[in-house]
């Protein structure tokens, strides 16, 4: 097992995913197997190989600095779980 239960819980927390205690062993097993699969990469020497984060060697296009959007709050908030006075509401954030 390349991952243990604590590691899985830590990852789930970082990703903000609630995992039932009963499901943890299943995730430990599956994720460990996937990590083992991924580990095959280490067999190949990549010294000096440039990382490729994009399939195409293209550069970023630039947008003109123009306001093209109008207020659509009503439309967007019609599908929101909880709003009031135009604000999205979430449980109290404590800073």
């Amino acid at each position: 097992m390349s991952l243990d239960a604590d590691a899985v819980k830590k990852i789930a927390y970082l990703a903000r995913l609630k995992i039932d205690e009963a499901d943890v062993p299943g995730y430990v097993n599956n994720l460990s197997n996937i990590i083992d699969l991924v580990e095959q990469m280490s067999a190949v020497d990549t010294e000096g190989v440039l990382p490729m984060s994009h399939p195409m060697d293209a550069v970023q296009r630039l947008r003109e600095d123009k306001v093209t959007e109008t207020n659509q709050r009503e439309i967007f908030q019609a599908i929101a779980p909880k709003t009031e006075d135009g604000l999205y509401l979430v449980p109290q954030v404590i800073e």
Binding site: L3, A7, V8, I11, A12, L14, A15, L17, I19, Y27, N30, L31, I34, I35, V38
Partner: peptide, 13 residues
């Protein structure tokens, strides 16, 4: 989906 999110989270951590 949760599995893949967790693998990705792990790989970037």
């Amino acid at each position: 989906v949760k599995r893949r999110i967790m693998i990705g989270t792990y790989a970037l951590s």
